[in-house]
Simulated assay, not measured.
Amino acid sequence: MVELPYLLKKESICHRKDGLLYIGDRRVFPFEKRFEPCSTVEQVAAALKAMVTQGGGPLQVAFTTLRFISEKMRLGRLPYSYEELRRSVALLIGARPTNTTMRRAMLALLEELAPLFADGAGPDEFALKVDELVDEQELYYDETYHQMGRIGSTLIEDGDVILTTCFAEHTFLLSLAYAREEGKALSVLVNETRPYLQGSRLTYPCLQEMGIQAHLITDGMGAHYLAEGKITKYMTASDLVCMDGSVVNKVGTLSNAVACNYYKVPYYAFSISPDPTKLSSSEIVMEERSAEEVLHCLSLPTTLEGKALYPSFDIIEPSLVHGIVTPKGVLAPSSLARSFS
């Protein structure tokens, strides 16, 4: 049976207990399994901004926070009003503006919940409706993760050596698990992914837990192994995919995609929800992160005091992308708009 590793289980991403919301702190994983406690929506938003969780984590945090909000409204600890709900949702969305999957999911839920206030429903009825809608959304995403894992596994051939960047989470890891279940031998080269080391701290331990052969490499080594012919595929997640097939992902993705294009190795990006509101990369709101983060690694300084640069995300143009793995199948960048607009 295919199972998710500890880091991707819902309770490990976030959970509620004794009136608080706890977010699994990926900044200290795998050395610690620690949770960041939050007593307000403002604290949840601050935790998202501080990268306590990232990638697909904010979506699950947003779902759990909606339950958290409804519980506080039911108990009279938050004003029971549509304005308060809208304000809270705006805080979550604003914490991670490049994560448009979370934004669109939360706005859709907000739209479904709005009539309750107009119809005079009380906080108890509101809380029940929130639980019903969030249950539906969580089930949809759980099923879609596995569906995309099965689709992704069809791209993997026996003996593949797959390069990845950052932490591609559910869909990529499930693709590997389903491919292995089919009897395919495979291994993964994991970029460490500076400055947060998502590759070495998140992806690599998950692969070890799943029993998948993996080797950790530094961010500049991908082209070396491509030149030696040792990499057969490049697979990553995507923070955002536009309708023209442009992919947004962690900085460092672009350099590997360029090298893959040169050495004729296909690059596949996983996208659970390409954004129909973004026609091209010119419409993206890119998150700003502090360049100070480049001057440190695991909280230790890497050099003397000075200046650094840190573009958090790369935009990978469609010509560098062989295919985009979606719930509707593996699509060429040029066919995305027809399938999702």
Rank of each mutant, 00 (worst) to 15 (best):
L279G: 07
T302V: 14
T218P: 03
K250D: 08
C260V: 05
P301W: 06
V251H: 10
S280G: 13
V258L: 15
S200C: 06
K307A: 08
V285M: 04
L202V: 05
V294I: 13
Q208Y: 05
H224R: 14
M221D: 09
L300I: 03
H224S: 10
N249K: 06
L186I: 13
A237F: 00
V251F: 13
K184Y: 06
M235G: 07
Q213G: 05
L298W: 07
N191K: 15
P311L: 07
G306N: 02
K184P: 11
I284K: 00
V294Q: 14
K307D: 10
M221A: 15
I272F: 04
C260H: 03
N256R: 00
E293W: 05
E192Y: 02
L207I: 09
E292V: 06
F270Y: 14
K264W: 01
T193N: 09
A269M: 03
S273R: 12
T193P: 12
I217S: 06
P266T: 06
G252M: 00
P311R: 10
S282P: 02
V241E: 01
L298E: 13
E209W: 05
A291M: 03
N261A: 11
L304S: 12
H215N: 13
S200L: 09
Y225D: 03
S312H: 06
Y196V: 12
N191A: 12
S200W: 02
A269F: 01
M235T: 08
S273W: 12
P274K: 03
L186N: 10
Y262G: 00
K250M: 03
S255G: 14
L300K: 13
L202M: 15
I231V: 15
L216T: 04
V190K: 01
I212T: 08
A237D: 08
G222K: 07
R201C: 09
E228C: 05
Y310W: 13
Y267A: 04
Y268M: 00
M235F: 14
T236Q: 05
S312Q: 10
L295V: 02
S187G: 12
G252E: 04
C260D: 08
L186V: 07
T236S: 14
V294G: 03
L216V: 12
R289V: 11
P274W: 00
L216P: 02
E293Q: 15
Q213L: 12
L309C: 06
S273Y: 13
E288G: 01
Y310T: 02
M221L: 14
T236A: 03
K278M: 14
A259H: 01
L197Q: 15
C297K: 09
R201H: 15
V248A: 10
S281N: 04
N249F: 00
E305R: 10
C242R: 01
Q208P: 00
R194S: 13
A308S: 13
L202C: 13
N261Q: 09
F270Q: 03
T193Q: 09
S299V: 07
R289C: 05
A308Q: 03
V247C: 02
K307Y: 07
